[in-house]
Amino acid sequence: MTDSPRPQVRFITVDSEDAGQRIDNFLVKTLKGVPKSMLYRLLRKGEIRVNKKRTKPEYKLVDEDIIRVAPIRVSENTNTVSTQLNVVANLEKQILFEDDRLIVINKPSGMAVHGGSGLSFGLIEALRALRPDARMLELVHRLDRDTSGCLVVAKKRSALRHLHEQLRNKTVQKFYHALVKGRWSTKLTRVAEGLKKNDLKSGERVVVVDNINGKESETRFKVLQHYKNATLVRAFPVTGRTHQIRVHCQTKGHSIACDAKYGHEDFDLEMKTLGLKRLFLHAASIEFIHPLSNERIKIEAPLEPSLEKLLKKLTKADVH
Protein backbone atom coordinates (compact mmCIF):
# COMPACT_ATOMS: atom_id res chain seq x y z
CA MET A 1 0.00 0.00 0.00
CA THR A 2 1.44 3.41 -0.93
CA ASP A 3 2.02 6.01 1.74
CA SER A 4 -0.81 8.44 2.12
CA PRO A 5 0.11 12.15 1.77
CA ARG A 6 1.43 13.95 4.84
CA PRO A 7 -1.44 14.96 7.11
CA GLN A 8 -2.27 18.67 7.16
CA VAL A 9 -3.81 21.06 9.68
CA ARG A 10 -7.56 21.13 9.09
CA PHE A 11 -9.94 24.02 9.62
CA ILE A 12 -13.66 23.27 9.83
CA THR A 13 -16.26 26.05 9.92
CA VAL A 14 -19.42 25.07 11.77
CA ASP A 15 -22.68 25.84 9.96
CA SER A 16 -26.23 26.09 11.30
CA GLU A 17 -26.78 22.38 10.52
CA ASP A 18 -24.15 21.32 13.05
CA ALA A 19 -24.65 24.08 15.63
CA GLY A 20 -25.96 22.90 18.99
CA GLN A 21 -24.25 19.51 19.11
CA ARG A 22 -21.34 18.52 21.32
CA ILE A 23 -17.91 18.86 19.75
CA ASP A 24 -16.93 15.25 20.61
CA ASN A 25 -19.99 13.85 18.78
CA PHE A 26 -19.36 16.18 15.83
CA LEU A 27 -15.69 15.10 15.56
CA VAL A 28 -16.53 11.37 15.69
CA LYS A 29 -18.77 11.85 12.64
CA THR A 30 -16.54 14.33 10.78
CA LEU A 31 -13.13 12.70 11.33
CA LYS A 32 -14.15 9.21 10.22
CA GLY A 33 -11.69 6.52 11.22
CA VAL A 34 -10.16 8.44 14.14
CA PRO A 35 -10.67 6.48 17.39
CA LYS A 36 -12.76 8.25 20.03
CA SER A 37 -9.99 7.86 22.62
CA MET A 38 -7.59 9.73 20.31
CA LEU A 39 -10.09 12.58 19.82
CA TYR A 40 -10.42 13.03 23.60
CA ARG A 41 -6.62 13.04 23.92
CA LEU A 42 -6.27 15.69 21.18
CA LEU A 43 -8.94 17.85 22.86
CA ARG A 44 -7.19 17.47 26.23
CA LYS A 45 -3.79 18.42 24.78
CA GLY A 46 -5.24 21.44 22.95
CA GLU A 47 -4.50 19.99 19.51
CA ILE A 48 -8.12 20.51 18.60
CA ARG A 49 -9.19 24.12 19.29
CA VAL A 50 -12.31 26.19 18.72
CA ASN A 51 -11.76 29.84 17.74
CA LYS A 52 -8.06 29.42 18.73
CA LYS A 53 -8.98 28.37 22.30
CA ARG A 54 -8.76 25.03 24.07
CA THR A 55 -12.12 23.35 24.52
CA LYS A 56 -13.77 20.49 26.45
CA PRO A 57 -15.53 17.48 24.86
CA GLU A 58 -18.94 18.66 26.13
CA TYR A 59 -18.64 22.09 24.46
CA LYS A 60 -21.70 22.77 22.27
CA LEU A 61 -20.89 24.13 18.84
CA VAL A 62 -22.11 27.54 17.70
CA ASP A 63 -22.78 28.66 14.11
CA GLU A 64 -19.57 30.08 12.50
CA ASP A 65 -17.23 28.45 15.10
CA ILE A 66 -13.86 27.62 13.52
CA ILE A 67 -12.41 24.28 14.61
CA ARG A 68 -8.66 23.78 14.12
CA VAL A 69 -7.53 20.15 14.01
CA ALA A 70 -3.80 19.41 14.30
CA PRO A 71 -2.37 17.02 11.67
CA ILE A 72 -3.48 13.46 12.41
CA ARG A 73 -2.77 10.35 10.41
CA VAL A 74 -5.75 8.06 10.06
CA SER A 75 -5.08 4.49 9.01
CA GLU A 76 -7.34 4.02 6.02
CA ASN A 77 -8.52 0.45 6.30
CA THR A 78 -10.07 0.02 2.89
CA ASN A 79 -10.10 -3.79 3.03
CA THR A 80 -13.38 -3.93 4.90
CA VAL A 81 -15.08 -1.83 2.27
CA SER A 82 -13.55 -3.56 -0.74
CA THR A 83 -14.60 -7.03 0.45
CA GLN A 84 -18.13 -5.69 0.80
CA LEU A 85 -18.37 -3.94 -2.56
CA ASN A 86 -21.10 -6.29 -3.78
CA VAL A 87 -23.15 -5.40 -0.67
CA VAL A 88 -22.62 -1.69 -1.34
CA ALA A 89 -23.54 -2.02 -5.02
CA ASN A 90 -26.67 -3.99 -4.14
CA LEU A 91 -27.75 -1.28 -1.68
CA GLU A 92 -27.97 1.28 -4.49
CA LYS A 93 -30.82 -0.80 -5.97
CA GLN A 94 -32.61 -0.83 -2.60
CA ILE A 95 -32.96 2.96 -2.33
CA LEU A 96 -36.68 3.79 -2.35
CA PHE A 97 -36.44 7.58 -1.97
CA GLU A 98 -33.61 10.10 -1.90
CA ASP A 99 -33.27 13.88 -1.87
CA ASP A 100 -30.81 16.29 -0.23
CA ARG A 101 -32.36 15.69 3.23
CA LEU A 102 -33.10 11.96 3.40
CA ILE A 103 -32.51 8.48 2.08
CA VAL A 104 -35.16 5.78 2.60
CA ILE A 105 -33.79 2.34 1.90
CA ASN A 106 -35.31 -1.14 1.74
CA LYS A 107 -32.88 -2.73 4.22
CA PRO A 108 -32.05 -6.35 3.40
CA SER A 109 -32.68 -9.03 6.03
CA GLY A 110 -29.51 -10.23 7.78
CA MET A 111 -27.79 -6.84 7.59
CA ALA A 112 -27.17 -4.96 10.83
CA VAL A 113 -27.98 -1.25 10.72
CA HIS A 114 -24.43 -0.46 11.85
CA GLY A 115 -21.16 -2.23 12.66
CA GLY A 116 -20.52 -3.39 16.22
CA SER A 117 -21.24 -6.61 18.13
CA GLY A 118 -18.41 -8.23 16.18
CA LEU A 119 -19.59 -6.76 12.86
CA SER A 120 -17.26 -4.24 11.29
CA PHE A 121 -19.62 -3.39 8.48
CA GLY A 122 -23.30 -2.49 8.70
CA LEU A 123 -25.83 -0.67 6.57
CA ILE A 124 -24.76 2.81 7.65
CA GLU A 125 -21.08 2.05 6.83
CA ALA A 126 -22.14 0.68 3.44
CA LEU A 127 -24.21 3.81 2.74
CA ARG A 128 -21.24 6.02 3.66
CA ALA A 129 -19.12 4.05 1.17
CA LEU A 130 -21.90 4.52 -1.40
CA ARG A 131 -22.22 8.26 -0.73
CA PRO A 132 -18.64 9.34 0.15
CA ASP A 133 -19.45 13.04 -0.43
CA ALA A 134 -22.36 13.12 2.02
CA ARG A 135 -21.27 15.25 4.99
CA MET A 136 -23.40 13.23 7.36
CA LEU A 137 -25.51 10.09 7.20
CA GLU A 138 -27.27 9.14 10.42
CA LEU A 139 -29.95 6.57 11.21
CA VAL A 140 -33.30 8.16 12.09
CA HIS A 141 -34.52 4.89 13.67
CA ARG A 142 -33.44 1.24 13.73
CA LEU A 143 -34.56 -2.13 12.45
CA ASP A 144 -33.54 -5.51 13.89
CA ARG A 145 -30.79 -7.19 11.90
CA ASP A 146 -33.14 -9.90 10.55
CA THR A 147 -36.00 -7.52 9.71
CA SER A 148 -36.14 -6.07 6.20
CA GLY A 149 -37.87 -2.96 4.89
CA CYS A 150 -38.15 0.82 5.18
CA LEU A 151 -35.28 2.47 7.02
CA VAL A 152 -34.83 6.26 7.07
CA VAL A 153 -31.38 7.86 7.05
CA ALA A 154 -30.90 11.62 7.51
CA LYS A 155 -28.42 13.58 5.39
CA LYS A 156 -28.70 16.75 7.46
CA ARG A 157 -28.80 17.37 11.20
CA SER A 158 -31.95 19.51 10.86
CA ALA A 159 -33.72 16.58 9.14
CA LEU A 160 -32.58 14.21 11.91
CA ARG A 161 -33.92 16.56 14.62
CA HIS A 162 -37.21 17.07 12.74
CA LEU A 163 -37.81 13.33 12.37
CA HIS A 164 -36.78 12.52 15.94
CA GLU A 165 -39.35 15.05 17.11
CA GLN A 166 -41.99 13.34 14.95
CA LEU A 167 -41.05 9.96 16.45
CA ARG A 168 -41.40 11.40 19.96
CA ASN A 169 -44.77 12.93 19.07
CA LYS A 170 -45.87 9.65 17.44
CA THR A 171 -46.67 11.27 14.09
CA VAL A 172 -44.54 8.71 12.21
CA GLN A 173 -46.55 5.67 11.08
CA LYS A 174 -44.71 2.42 10.46
CA PHE A 175 -46.54 -0.63 9.14
CA TYR A 176 -44.98 -4.09 9.15
CA HIS A 177 -46.02 -7.33 7.46
CA ALA A 178 -45.44 -10.58 9.36
CA LEU A 179 -46.25 -14.21 8.63
CA VAL A 180 -47.27 -15.82 11.92
CA LYS A 181 -48.10 -19.29 13.16
CA GLY A 182 -51.72 -20.46 13.23
CA ARG A 183 -54.98 -18.63 12.64
CA TRP A 184 -54.87 -15.07 13.98
CA SER A 185 -58.37 -13.97 15.03
CA THR A 186 -59.75 -10.95 13.15
CA LYS A 187 -61.02 -9.79 16.56
CA LEU A 188 -57.48 -9.59 17.97
CA THR A 189 -56.63 -6.04 16.87
CA ARG A 190 -54.57 -4.79 19.82
CA VAL A 191 -51.82 -6.26 22.00
CA ALA A 192 -50.62 -4.23 25.00
CA GLU A 193 -48.00 -5.89 27.21
CA GLY A 194 -45.15 -4.54 29.34
CA LEU A 195 -41.77 -5.54 27.89
CA LYS A 196 -38.51 -5.99 29.75
CA LYS A 197 -35.00 -6.63 28.37
CA ASN A 198 -33.09 -9.56 29.88
CA ASP A 199 -29.43 -10.32 29.24
CA LEU A 200 -28.69 -14.04 29.33
CA LYS A 201 -25.40 -15.49 30.59
CA SER A 202 -24.42 -16.16 26.98
CA GLY A 203 -24.55 -12.39 26.38
CA GLU A 204 -27.65 -12.78 24.22
CA ARG A 205 -30.41 -10.25 24.81
CA VAL A 206 -34.02 -11.39 24.97
CA VAL A 207 -37.19 -9.45 25.70
CA VAL A 208 -39.86 -10.89 27.99
CA VAL A 209 -43.40 -9.86 28.91
CA ASP A 210 -43.37 -8.24 32.36
CA ASN A 211 -46.39 -6.11 33.19
CA ILE A 212 -44.95 -5.02 36.56
CA ASN A 213 -41.35 -3.98 35.75
CA GLY A 214 -41.52 -3.81 31.96
CA LYS A 215 -42.05 -0.75 29.76
CA GLU A 216 -45.56 -0.18 28.43
CA SER A 217 -45.92 -1.20 24.81
CA GLU A 218 -48.72 -1.50 22.30
CA THR A 219 -49.10 -2.95 18.80
CA ARG A 220 -52.22 -2.85 16.61
CA PHE A 221 -52.86 -5.75 14.26
CA LYS A 222 -54.96 -6.43 11.17
CA VAL A 223 -55.35 -9.76 9.36
CA LEU A 224 -54.32 -9.46 5.70
CA GLN A 225 -54.70 -13.11 4.68
CA HIS A 226 -55.41 -16.42 6.39
CA TYR A 227 -53.51 -19.47 5.14
CA LYS A 228 -53.60 -23.10 6.19
CA ASN A 229 -51.60 -23.09 9.52
CA ALA A 230 -50.46 -19.45 9.10
CA THR A 231 -51.67 -15.84 8.87
CA LEU A 232 -50.22 -12.78 7.16
CA VAL A 233 -50.80 -9.84 9.50
CA ARG A 234 -50.16 -6.12 9.33
CA ALA A 235 -48.64 -4.73 12.52
CA PHE A 236 -48.62 -1.08 13.57
CA PRO A 237 -46.35 -0.47 16.60
CA VAL A 238 -47.80 2.41 18.64
CA THR A 239 -44.68 2.31 20.85
CA GLY A 240 -41.17 1.40 19.65
CA ARG A 241 -39.69 -1.13 22.06
CA THR A 242 -36.93 -3.62 21.20
CA HIS A 243 -38.37 -6.79 19.55
CA GLN A 244 -41.88 -5.47 20.30
CA ILE A 245 -43.81 -6.99 17.38
CA ARG A 246 -41.94 -10.30 17.69
CA VAL A 247 -42.73 -10.69 21.41
CA HIS A 248 -46.32 -9.46 21.06
CA CYS A 249 -46.94 -12.12 18.39
CA GLN A 250 -45.24 -14.83 20.46
CA THR A 251 -47.19 -14.01 23.63
CA LYS A 252 -50.50 -14.53 21.77
CA GLY A 253 -49.35 -17.94 20.52
CA HIS A 254 -48.63 -16.69 17.00
CA SER A 255 -44.82 -16.61 16.69
CA ILE A 256 -43.38 -15.03 13.54
CA ALA A 257 -42.03 -17.51 10.98
CA CYS A 258 -38.31 -18.31 11.40
CA ASP A 259 -37.79 -16.11 14.45
CA ALA A 260 -34.54 -17.45 15.94
CA LYS A 261 -35.31 -15.94 19.39
CA TYR A 262 -39.09 -16.16 19.76
CA GLY A 263 -40.10 -18.72 17.15
CA HIS A 264 -42.02 -22.03 17.28
CA GLU A 265 -39.85 -24.98 16.28
CA ASP A 266 -42.44 -27.05 14.34
CA PHE A 267 -43.88 -24.05 12.48
CA ASP A 268 -40.38 -22.82 11.60
CA LEU A 269 -39.44 -26.26 10.28
CA GLU A 270 -42.57 -26.32 8.11
CA MET A 271 -41.74 -22.87 6.68
CA LYS A 272 -38.07 -23.79 6.12
CA THR A 273 -39.21 -26.88 4.19
CA LEU A 274 -41.13 -24.49 1.92
CA GLY A 275 -37.94 -22.48 1.36
CA LEU A 276 -38.05 -19.72 3.99
CA LYS A 277 -34.50 -18.82 5.05
CA ARG A 278 -35.13 -15.66 7.15
CA LEU A 279 -37.42 -14.00 9.67
CA PHE A 280 -40.71 -13.13 7.97
CA LEU A 281 -40.97 -9.59 9.35
CA HIS A 282 -40.87 -6.70 6.89
CA ALA A 283 -41.24 -2.94 7.44
CA ALA A 284 -43.66 -2.52 4.53
CA SER A 285 -44.23 1.24 4.73
CA ILE A 286 -43.38 4.42 6.61
CA GLU A 287 -45.28 7.70 6.66
CA PHE A 288 -43.98 11.02 7.99
CA ILE A 289 -43.87 14.77 7.39
CA HIS A 290 -41.01 15.73 5.09
CA PRO A 291 -38.59 18.01 7.00
CA LEU A 292 -38.35 20.56 4.18
CA SER A 293 -41.67 20.55 2.28
CA ASN A 294 -43.79 19.84 5.41
CA GLU A 295 -45.89 17.52 3.25
CA ARG A 296 -46.88 14.10 4.56
CA ILE A 297 -45.21 11.39 2.49
CA LYS A 298 -45.62 7.63 2.47
CA ILE A 299 -42.91 5.30 1.20
CA GLU A 300 -43.50 1.60 0.60
CA ALA A 301 -40.96 -1.22 0.38
CA PRO A 302 -41.86 -4.30 -1.68
CA LEU A 303 -41.41 -7.75 -0.15
CA GLU A 304 -38.27 -9.44 -1.36
CA PRO A 305 -38.95 -12.11 -4.05
CA SER A 306 -38.21 -15.02 -1.66
CA LEU A 307 -41.05 -13.93 0.65
CA GLU A 308 -43.48 -13.44 -2.26
CA LYS A 309 -42.52 -16.90 -3.50
CA LEU A 310 -43.26 -18.46 -0.10
CA LEU A 311 -46.73 -16.84 0.11
CA LYS A 312 -47.59 -18.29 -3.31
CA LYS A 313 -46.76 -21.78 -1.98
CA LEU A 314 -49.17 -21.46 0.97
CA THR A 315 -52.80 -22.53 0.72
CA LYS A 316 -55.18 -19.59 1.24
CA ALA A 317 -57.99 -20.00 3.75
CA ASP A 318 -61.18 -17.96 4.12
CA VAL A 319 -61.40 -15.10 6.60
CA HIS A 320 -64.26 -15.78 9.02
Rank of each mutant, 00 (worst) to 15 (best):
G275A: 13
V62T: 00
K215D: 10
L167F: 12
V153H: 09
L130D: 01
Y262T: 03
T242C: 05
C150W: 05
I212F: 10
W184A: 05
D99T: 13
I124A: 04
Q84Y: 03
S120N: 13
P132C: 01
D99R: 05
K261L: 05
G115N: 01
L307Y: 15
D65N: 10
N294K: 15
T171A: 03
K53Q: 11
R157D: 11
L102C: 02
Y59D: 10
A129E: 07
K316T: 00
L269R: 03
R101I: 13
S16Q: 14
F267T: 03
N25P: 11
T78M: 14
E193L: 04
S37Y: 00
A257V: 08
I95N: 01
V223F: 00
N86K: 13
E204P: 07
P7K: 14
A192F: 02
N90V: 02
N90K: 06
V140A: 09
N213Q: 15
F236H: 10
V69E: 03
L139G: 00
D199R: 05
M136S: 06
V153E: 05
K93I: 02
L102K: 02
V140S: 09
N86W: 15
T2E: 12
V153D: 02
L311A: 14
N77R: 13
D210Q: 10
F267V: 03
L61Y: 06
D268W: 03
T242P: 10
L39F: 10
S285L: 10
D100G: 07
L281G: 14
Y262L: 04
P302K: 09
P237E: 05
L143I: 11
E265P: 07
L224V: 02
L232E: 12
K261E: 05
Q21K: 15
G240R: 12
T315M: 06
S117R: 11
E287K: 13
L188E: 02
R41E: 14
E92N: 10
T231V: 09
D100S: 12
V140G: 02
I299Q: 01
A112I: 09
Q250W: 12
